[in-house]
């Protein structure tokens, strides 16, 4: 028996919004420790890694590990039927071929359930090596989303250069070029608005804007985002999900021939 309960459906809605642009379907691996998802997008350029810890749920029970393959468009249709403040419970029997979502309104006067067929996705898992990154940038997630959205208008590729002075995002295309420089802030009062950079050595890497735009669909999950970079390895864009876990996106760089 698997059962996981969250008092606010809003969180699960946001999680789904954060992955469904990159993935059509995904396997949710459920175990005693929580729910994990790891999947590449169709082009195998990016990888999504989601962890929802069991202790972050209001109720969590997983008697036997199970993998639930879900069509994310179908899951999205179901979650749209929940109000943000509904309690949501995800349930499945051991070896089941369906999963059930139960939504309960705050006053319990409305209870709905939606059963969805599971899929056999046979997704491969990749080993993600531990990396000591050359640069780790932390900034407001809204600021990152704004920069990516603004620059993507002017080209397909963004060059991210990080030095100890700051981080520069540059794009060039048919119209011309655009640069956004962010300096490290010393704004200790407003930590949430600060930009911080931990740098071992400077890094310059190029990435496809379209994937960064997809990653910023996670913005509602967290006020902060962390970008981790080292030369010639994938960028990691991480959003913490308060008291529940995190979503990490890995993006393969564009490299010279």
């Amino acid at each position: 028996m698997f059962e996981a309960r969250l008092t606010s459906a809003a969180t699960l809605k946001k999680v789904l919004e954060a992955v469904k642009e990159l993935l059509n379907e995904a396997s949710f691996d459920c175990s005693d420790s929580g729910i994990q998802l790891q999947a590449m997008d169709n082009s195998h350029v990016s990888l999504v890694s989601l962890t929802l810890r069991s202790d972050g749920f209001d109720k969590y029970r997983c008697d036997r590990s199970l993998t639930m393959g879900m069509n994310l468009a179908s899951m999205s249709k179901i979650l749209k039927c929940a109000n943000n403040d509904d309690t949501v419970t995800i349930k499945a029997q051991d070896d089941a071929d369906t999963v059930t979502f139960v939504f309960e309104s705050k006053k319990q006067e409305k209870i709905s359930d939606y059963e969805m067929k599971l899929m056999n996705l046979d997704q491969e898992h990749l080993g993600i090596p531990e990396t000591d990154f050359s640069c780790v940038i932390r900034m407001p997630s809204v600021e990152f989303a704004r920069i990516v959205r603004d620059l993507a208008q002017f080209g397909e590729t963004v060059l991210i250069c990080c030095t100890k002075e700051g981080v520069k995002f540059s794009v060039s295309g048919d119209v011309g070029s655009a640069n956004v420089k962010l300096a490290q802030t010393n704004n200790f009062d407003k930590e949430e608005e600060s930009v911080s950079i931990e740098m071992q050595e400077p890094v310059s890497l190029s990435f496809a804007c379209q994937y960064l735009i997809s990653f910023t669909k996670a913005t509602p999950l967290s006020p902060r985002v962390q970008l981790s970079m080292s030369s010639n390895v994938p960028l990691v864009v991480e959003y913490e999900i308060a008291e529940l876990g995190y979503i990490r996106y890995y993006l393969a760089p564009k490299i010279e021939d």
Binding site: M40, S46, E124, G127, T157, P234, A252, P253, E256
Partner: peptide
Amino acid sequence: DKNQSTIGSFFKKK
């Protein structure tokens, strides 16, 4: 010019 690499060239199958 630059080419898009893939995740599979950095992370290996488990």
